[in-house]
Design a protein around this nucleic acid. Sequence first.
DNA 1: GCATATAAGTCAACAACACTGACTTATTTT
DNA 2: AAAATAAGTCAGTGTTGTTGACTTATATGC
Lengths: 170, 170
Amino acid sequence: MDEQALWAQPQDQAPAPREDDMRHVMELLFFAYRDFTGEADAILADYGMGRAHHRAIYFIGVNEGISVSELLAILKITKQSLNRVLSTLIDEGYVVQETDDGDRRRRLMQLTPKGRELEHLLAERQTARLSRAFHDAGLDAVEGFQRVLLGMIDKEARHRVSTGPAPGYS
Amino acid sequence: MDEQALWAQPQDQAPAPREDDMRHVMELLFFAYRDFTGEADAILADYGMGRAHHRAIYFIGVNEGISVSELLAILKITKQSLNRVLSTLIDEGYVVQETDDGDRRRRLMQLTPKGRELEHLLAERQTARLSRAFHDAGLDAVEGFQRVLLGMIDKEARHRVSTGPAPGYS
DNA sequence: GCATATAAGTCAACAACACTGACTTATTTT
DNA sequence: AAAATAAGTCAGTGTTGTTGACTTATATGC
């Protein structure tokens, strides 16, 4: 981690992030995130769904058997907002709920094959975009990319990120 | 740029990005972007504004004298959506319009001192979050972060990013 | 100069997605 | 038996996006 040392070194022309650099990064973030989500949004529109449906599908897919309140905690939205989305996903057969045997108040959720199919379709496009960006930027850049993203997340929320930072890359 | 060579090298256990790694990155993106915007959103709520107002203020601030249609091209939203936001910004004295002398159809926009003040307040918080993340991740990570973000942006839209990738860092 | 194109603004209607607050129904815990 | 929790529901609201049509002013091409 000698990058930290470099950063902290109070030397001549120290690389303290200047205001304009920060603005530049904010723009990159805005455009990158918009284009990243835009592709999936376009597909979802064909299904009469939106980004909220995607998020629900995604997090149910990564956390098989997740309960409603756990999903609420991840998404940080209200019960009402989630319910609207969840109802249509269940009605149209993308998600199934099953009463938890241990605690019969809880409804554990899973993707149906149909749901998994849609999740894959969406992930495919976004993965393609990421792969391209990773390839162009280089392996080192990808590691840095993930480190910065993690640092941007509220400390209390970092544990919510599923797997660790790709230990299998080497 | 030998990272590219590394990435492309078809060696044993080639670091081709696996599906789970990609999902991990998508989660990082989701949480990072949400927390990044959340801070500004909270401030904006006190002013009775939303993220759309912030974006308008931001891009008018970075592009002094921008015209309405140029702003529309950057934001990629409809005239109607922008106008709602723009009207309140003008009515409440955050933005001023001035007829272009060269082409009197165009309205060139600027932030008022009040607008610049709000822009700074918002940028301050987000800059603080980024600085923290940059510090924790290290200088090299920051460079990679920016390279990946740029690669994620639609090719046709990359020229819209204001300044180049921080040439003054060294 | 007149037709056409462009820049900006406006109206009406609509949809997605978030919010609040209150309230019900099961079920579990104390 | 009382209190807490998990889930679901209802009614109302606000922001931000959409479409399509239309007006006004100005510029440009022929």
